[in-house]
Deep mutational scan, measured.
Amino acid sequence: MTEYKLVVVGAGGVGKSALTIQLIQNHFVDEYDPTIEDSYRKQVVIDGETCLLDILDTAGQEEYSAMRDQYMRTGEGFLCVFAINNTKSFEDIHHYREQIKRVKDSEDVPMVLVGNKCDLPSRTVDTKQAQDLARSYGIPFIETSAKTRQGVDDAFYTLVREIRKHKEKMSKDGKKKKKKSKTKCVIM
């Protein structure tokens, strides 16, 4: 069974824990209790493949930012979460993405942009803004509501699919490099 290491990042209060708990335990946590770091595991079937999701729910508070490099190193894919009623959390996505790329030393890291709290009427981040940002990053965008469960499975499952595509691409690139290195030079 394939294991996928997913990391949920975003500013404090955007609903990272609520999304994760909704996926794992099928219930909505409405009281806000700032996370330092929590880890969850769940076995699911995605596109006919049974897999184990190892999900790291991270601290959004700035005082825990020193811990970010460590979990970013171990993560295979990242859910970059903002709240649709919090423009600052949307603007912060850029910083999370840049930090992930720096730590992973790669421009090509599996990510999904997630606009959470889409059940709320007080939207300050337009869907088109988020779609445009995701398009500019070359990553999928999904709106979710941890409260109603809308888009929750889709967000995590899409990230797994992005990781699969990335692994497939990397193995193809690896095979191309191996083929090239088999060419021999004969000096007579």
Rank of each mutant, 00 (worst) to 15 (best):
T2G: 11
T2A: 11
T2P: 08
E3L: 05
E3I: 04
E3R: 08
E3V: 08
Y4P: 09
Y4W: 07
Y4K: 14
Y4M: 14
Y4T: 14
Y4S: 11
Y4F: 11
K5R: 13
K5N: 06
K5F: 00
K5P: 12
L6Y: 03
L6H: 01
L6V: 09
L6I: 13
V7R: 02
V8G: 01
V8R: 00
V9K: 02
V9N: 03
V9L: 15
V9D: 04
V9P: 01
G10E: 00
A11H: 06
A11W: 05
A11K: 05
A11L: 13
A11Y: 07
A11Q: 09
G12D: 12
G12H: 08
G13Q: 10
G13C: 07
G13A: 04
G13F: 04
V14W: 07
G15D: 00
K16R: 15
K16C: 15
K16E: 05
S17Y: 01
S17V: 00
A18K: 02
L19H: 14
L19R: 00
L19Q: 13
L19N: 14
T20D: 11
T20Y: 00
T20K: 01
T20A: 06
I21Q: 14
I21L: 15
I21D: 10
Q22M: 04
Q22S: 14
Q22T: 09
L23Q: 15
L23S: 14
L23V: 12
I24V: 10
I24Q: 12
I24M: 11
I24P: 02
Q25G: 10
Q25E: 05
Q25N: 06
Q25R: 10
Q25T: 13
N26T: 09
N26F: 03
N26Q: 11
N26C: 09
H27V: 11
H27Y: 09
H27W: 14
H27P: 01
F28Q: 03
F28G: 02
F28N: 01
F28V: 05
F28Y: 12
V29H: 11
V29G: 06
V29E: 06
D30K: 09
E31M: 10
Y32S: 09
Y32P: 11
Y32W: 03
D33C: 05
P34L: 14
P34F: 12
P34V: 15
T35S: 15
T35D: 11
I36Q: 02
I36L: 15
I36C: 12
I36V: 10
I36K: 02
D38L: 00
D38M: 01
D38Y: 04
D38A: 02
S39I: 05
S39V: 11
S39A: 14
S39K: 02
R41G: 02
R41C: 02
R41H: 03
K42I: 06
K42Y: 05
K42W: 03
Q43W: 06
V44Q: 08
V44G: 11
V44S: 09
V45N: 11
V45C: 13
V45K: 13
I46M: 08
I46Q: 09
I46W: 07
I46D: 11
D47M: 03
G48P: 07
G48S: 07
G48F: 03
G48C: 03
G48N: 07
E49C: 06
E49L: 03
E49A: 09
E49T: 12
E49I: 05
E49V: 10
T50C: 09
T50R: 11
T50K: 10
T50Y: 06
C51M: 11
C51H: 12
C51W: 10
L52A: 09
L52I: 11
L52R: 11
L52K: 08
L52E: 08
L53G: 08
L53W: 06
L53N: 11
D54F: 00
I55H: 11
I55L: 07
I55V: 15
L56D: 13
L56V: 14
D57E: 02
D57G: 01
D57L: 01
T58C: 14
T58P: 13
T58G: 10
A59V: 13
A59L: 05
G60L: 14
G60P: 14
G60K: 15
Q61D: 08
Q61Y: 08
Q61N: 06
Q61F: 08
E62R: 05
E62A: 11
E62S: 10
E62Q: 10
E62K: 06
E62N: 10
E62V: 06
E63P: 08
E63A: 04
E63N: 08
E63W: 03
E63D: 11
Y64M: 11
Y64D: 11
Y64H: 14
Y64T: 13
Y64K: 13
